[in-house]
């Protein structure tokens, strides 16, 4: 029997609400808002309350995939990177940098978000970058 509450920060938006993820025998079973956190004082929104659900969701992607002849196929990371890089280069050469846009996420770290905007602006040469948590 192993029951633990792991303190963490919500990944859904930039508010930074704190909660505990309830772990029972290695599986996430619930979310409990942190009462003593000065950020959310024991309160959460509906997304925060259900955050434990997406982690173990069967719909979650666990491999890179490329659509080939209309069907999504599992591919290696090497193949996925090669394909992405060559298509981005082709599009940039043919239509210009502003034909490309990037959408990043609140579910990654600040540093990863920084890297993507750097890649968009310095690497590709476009300001087309936005974020799923632009609320």
């Amino acid at each position: 029997m192993d029951y633990q509450n792991i303190l963490t920060t919500c990944t859904y938006c930039g508010c930074g609400c704190n909660f505990f993820l309830e772990v029972l025998d290695g599986k996430l079973v619930g979310t409990i808002p942190c009462k003593t956190s000065p950020v959310n004082e024991g309160k959460l929104c509906i997304k925060g309350w259900n955050v434990h659900q997406f982690v173990q969701s069967e719909n979650r992607l666990t491999h890179p995939m490329i659509r080939k002849n209309g069907v999504l196929e599992k591919v290696s990371w090497d193949e996925a990177f090669d394909y992405t890089a060559s298509r981005l280069s082709e599009i940039k050469a043919e239509k210009g940098s502003d034909a490309i846009g990037f959408l990043t996420s609140a579910k990654v770290t600040n540093e990863e978000n920084y890297l993507l905007q750097k890649f968009a602006r310095a690497g590709v040469g476009t300001n087309n970058i936005d974020h799923c948590a632009r609320l």
Partner: peptide, 20 residues
């Protein structure tokens, strides 16, 4: 008892905890 469900100071916060 197999375990005791109480509260614990943890990472500067108060958290529910199962003491074994």
């Amino acid at each position: 008892i197999a375990g005791f469900l109480g509260l614990r100071e943890q990472n500067g916060q108060v958290a529910p905890h199962l003491f074994m």
